[in-house]
């Protein structure tokens, strides 16, 4: 194995890890706010990718511009989903039942995608699809760079929102201690709804980015949900930095392992990491006290 190949994989791994980090951040957000494990996250990811593909096919404009529609749309869907569906579940069994509920949503989305767009594999062909630039001897496709750029920008935006806006403060307060947040006058229900919308908006961005670079089909989301779930457990449920670090480490690991093992077996790294985490540190490597209990 020569150095340039290794370096190439490393760069690709970092780029992939960025996308994983963004999506895992969304998942962590839902979990933090509502103790909800959102199985449908990756289904929405694929839905956004399909919308970008459809937008491109119908209008011929760059699919990235579909973001201006899908992000607000997904935000609204997220708010509605939290207010109308998730909030209705009984608090005692919320975590378990929310898994089933979001699983049901994922199945419905997959079925509808297959129904409307058929099961055919789709791919967007763009002028710059085949182009790549050279970074220190590694060839990196432009679309992968765009994907990473989008993911990094959205993560940064998420960080700024969470850290410096009033809404972000009340969201963090809701995550930390709901009753206390209510006591200081935060409308936690409303904030939770917006937080949910924010999480789903990450799926819109991730899906659009994914559509540039990947062949999409309705059942693709199962290939994403496994790694994403593994990432948030390894990172510790509820910890955004944990999820981001785990996403980077596992993304790079997957990319490097592809050289000796091939793409299919390289995916097992997520599951190996998942089981190793459960054996060694069931609460995850960065998570707090929340994780094991839920």
């Amino acid at each position: 194995m020569d150095g340039s190949l290794l370096f190439q994989s490393l760069v690709l791994g970092i780029l992939l890890g960025g996308l994983y980090a963004l999506l895992a951040a969304g998942l962590t957000l839902y979990f933090g706010i509502m103790r909800v494990v959102m199985i449908a996250h990756s289904a929405f990811l694929i839905l956004a990718a399909y919308l970008a593909w459809w937008f491109h096919r119908e209008t011929g404009i760059d699919p990235l511009l579909s973001l201006f529609v899908t992000v607000p749309l997904f935000f609204a869907v997220g708010v509605l989903m939290q207010r109308l569906l998730v909030a209705r579940l009984r608090p005692v069994t919320l975590t378990m039942m929310s898994v089933l509920l979001t699983f049901a949503i994922a199945l419905t989305i997959e079925g509808l995608l297959g129904f409307v767009f058929s099961g055919t594999q789709r791919r967007i062909q763009l002028g710059y699809s085949g182009e790549s630039i050279e970074v220190f001897g590694a060839h990196v496709a432009v679309v992968k760079l765009i994907t990473f750029g989008l993911a990094a920008a959205s993560l940064a935006a998420l960080y700024v929102i969470m850290k410096y806006t009033k809404f972000g403060q009340s969201l963090r307060a809701t995550i930390q201690h709901k009753e206390a947040a209510q006591l200081v006058g935060i409308k936690t229900d409303r904030v939770a709804g917006y937080g949910f919308g924010l999480g789903l908006a990450t799926a819109a961005i991730g899906g659009t980015a994914l559509s540039l670079d990947a062949t999409i089909y309705p059942s693709l989301h199962w290939h994403w949900i496994g790694p994403l779930m593994a990432i948030i457990v390894v990172g510790g449920l509820g910890s955004i930095p944990g999820a981001a670090i785990a996403a980077m480490v596992l993304g790079i690991g997957q990319s490097l392992l592809q050289i000796p093992m091939g793409t299919t077996w390289a995916q097992t790294i997520f599951y190996v990491a998942l089981f190793a985490t459960l054996m060694l540190r069931p609460q995850g490597f960065f998570g707090g006290r929340l994780a094991q209990r839920f």
Binding site: M229, A230, L278, P282, Q292, F294
Partner: peptide, 10 residues
Amino acid sequence: RVRGASFVIV
């Protein structure tokens, strides 16, 4: 070893 959501994920 884990409960609830983590168990479902596993």
